[in-house]
């Protein structure tokens, strides 16, 4: 009996290995997109814990509404002095900012992708919802047990502050567990670890720990109260809604 079990384990290991080996980088990217872009909309509370190079810690909280890949509203809730500040991202690189103390919105220029968002170690590009298969070409560097190490580079026409990113993903669910991004000079600049959680049919990053290697700072983005497919209205993602808060 034991022998049979052993054979079964052996066979299944080989089989699953075969299955992954058979995947091309493009297929892996597509599988990643499939698991990460399932929900139509999503609402969550984010807690951002920012630690600078001297170990000083600062915390910000925000509520995030997201619909599809291109509509997103970020509204800060804490600390009190920043409550109400909001960012609205719309298709075609349209981005608006609302400062309640001024009572008016302003459009923000589009070429800010490499800038840090709200004092965190995430750049606007890091927060962008991008379909992997449409934006990157891949190259499998290593496969080891349940781990696939994939190198991705932006496709021609896609602007990115990174020349390449090394993604370590779990073969069982195709979710990235670790990413390491390199600048144009080939220097490691960002490193992130992802902790994934599952709610119903959907996976979401419960925590992303982003480190800015050059600056020595880091940010933990922790997601709570995540709700999927609650039929968010398009009205939420309008300039009028931005200012009427």
């Amino acid at each position: 009996m034991r022998f049979v079990l052993f054979l079964y384990v052996l066979a299944s290991t080989i089989w699953s290995g075969d299955k992954a080996l058979a995947l091309t980088p493009e297929e892996i990217l597509r599988r990643m997109d499939e698991v990460m872009f399932q929900p139509g909309d999503q609402t969550s509370n984010a807690r951002m814990v920012m630690v600078d190079r001297n170990g000083n810690e600062r915390v910000r909280e925000a509520t995030i509404w997201q619909k599809g890949g291109e509509k997103r509203l970020f509204r800060f809730t804490s600390p009190a002095s920043e409550a109400g500040i909001a960012f609205l991202s719309l298709p075609n690189d349209l981005m608006y900012l609302y400062l309640p103390a001024f009572g008016r919105e302003r459009r923000i220029a589009a070429h800010l992708k490499n800038q840090n968002f709200a004092g965190t170690d995430f750049t606007y590009e890091d927060l962008e919802v991008r379909k992997y298969a449409e934006s990157f070409s891949g190259n499998i560097l290593r496969q080891d047990g349940n781990i696939i190490v994939l190198e991705i580079r932006p496709l021609p026409g896609i602007t990115s502050e990174y020349s390449r990113t090394v993604v370590t993903l779990n073969r069982t669910n195709f979710l990235p567990e670790k990413t390491e991004s390199y600048d144009r000079g080939g220097n490691l600049v960002k490193s992130a670890t992802h902790t994934w959680a599952r709610q119903g049919a959907f996976w979401y990053p419960q925590e992303i720990h982003m480190r800015d290697v050059r600056r020595g700072s880091s940010t933990r983005m922790i997601m709570r109260n995540v709700r999927f497919n609650t039929n968010l209205s398009d009205q939420i993602f309008t300039v009028r809604n931005l200012t009427s808060f």
């Binding site: 800060f76 002095s81 920043e82 500040i85 400062l99 103390a101 001024f102 800038q115 709200a118 004092g119």
Partner: peptide, 17 residues
């Protein structure tokens, strides 16, 4: 003049090198 306005402008500068 208003401290809240300064704080919110400051928020936008936060994280700039």
């Amino acid at each position: 003049e208003e401290p809240e306005k300064i704080e919110q402008l400051w928020f936008l500068l936060d994280g700039q090198e």
